[in-house]
Computed example of a mutant assay.
Amino acid sequence: MRIARYTSAAGPERLGIVTVVSGREMLVDAVKAGGGRGGPATPTSVMQLIEGGAAAMDAIRELLAWAADRQDPLWLDNPDSVQWLTPVPEKSMFCAGRNFGRHKLESMKGSAANTSTLHSDFPTGFVKLGRTLVPHKSRVKRPDDVLSFDYEVEIALVLGKAIDARIEIDPASAIFGYTIFNDLSAREWQLREMQNGMLMLGKNFPGFGPIGPYILTADDVPDPTALVLWLKVNGELRQHSDCRDLIFGFPEMVAFWARFGLVPGDLISTGTPEGVALHHRPDPRAWYLKPGDRVEAGVDGIGVLETFIV
């Protein structure tokens, strides 16, 4: 099941469930459909669905089946006409770095010693501030002092349960679903920061976290390693991989970042595959993002996240 968070004329936050009407994807507004059906209450927001656990998921699936049979246009929203929101409200986000094997190799060329020791015990990564996250179809401004403006397609998992290092549960069971993330990066700042052993500003300018548009629930992803992700700039394919190239998989990342104490709605990203602008040779400048560029980040089975650079 794919779900979305958006606004429409009906209200400031809607829980939409993807259905197909006459061969076209549409969004069933859970509040409108639930009101039309009556009976037991169903979740009316993404966070209610996440926090409601299995019972909430069952209720939404039943509502979707009921609404899909009727296809009442009063309950349906066109994805092309809604105002998108981030898939979850502002939450903590933990991002893996150099976690795809081929990206690790392209980023460590000429540093054989570092390549052999990186990731020896646990993931590397950084925090993405929740307020940097922006939804599908956002216009993101390239900072005035940034020319090396890079893209990174990633998959972000959405936590469905609270988990910390003391809780003995299967980390995979804490995953509610998966969405698409584009980890925009100011390489000038990132590379300077890394010389100081840190990574913060280069990843956290306003708008540097396009995410969405949909969450694909984990029960519809029997093998997350088979997820295929890709990125295009102005229609040109720049990145393409599947998650079999991950160094640390989804459950391993959940188990590691659980040391922070994770709560429902928190986000963990995979890191990006090879093909970022920074590592194009001999001169990456032509590959960096510029005002006027249209970026599409996709994950097969989830959708396409579109961002406009201004």
Rank of each mutant, 00 (worst) to 15 (best):
V134Y: 03
V134M: 03
H136C: 05
H136K: 11
K137E: 15
S138L: 05
S138A: 15
S138C: 02
S138K: 09
V140S: 01
P143K: 03
D144C: 11
D145A: 08
V146G: 01
V146P: 01
F149P: 07
F149H: 02
D150W: 05
Y151G: 01
Y151K: 06
E152D: 07
V153N: 03
A156D: 12
L157C: 07
L159K: 01
G160N: 06
K161A: 14
I163Y: 09
D164L: 07
D164F: 08
D164W: 07
D164P: 09
A165T: 09
R166T: 14
R166I: 11
I167H: 12
I169C: 13
D170T: 10
P171M: 05
A172N: 13
S173V: 04
A174G: 10
A174I: 12
Y178I: 00
I180Y: 03
F181I: 04
N182H: 09
N182I: 08
D183V: 00
L184K: 05
S185F: 08
A186S: 13
R187F: 02
R192N: 14
N196P: 06
G197W: 00
M198L: 14
L201S: 11
K203C: 10
N204M: 10
N204T: 11
N204C: 06
P206V: 05
P206R: 03
G207S: 05
G207E: 04
F208N: 04
G209C: 07
G209V: 03
P210R: 07
P210S: 04
I211H: 02
G212H: 04
P213R: 10
P213M: 00
Y214P: 02
T217Y: 03
D219V: 07
D220Q: 14
V221G: 01
P222V: 08
P222I: 04
P222T: 08
D223T: 10
A226W: 10
L231W: 07
K232F: 06
K232W: 09
K232L: 13
N234F: 01
G235T: 00
L237N: 09
L237G: 05
R238S: 05
H240G: 01
S241A: 15
C243P: 02
R244L: 10
D245Y: 12
L246K: 05
I247Q: 00
F248I: 13
F248G: 10
F248W: 15
F248A: 08
P251A: 00
P251I: 09
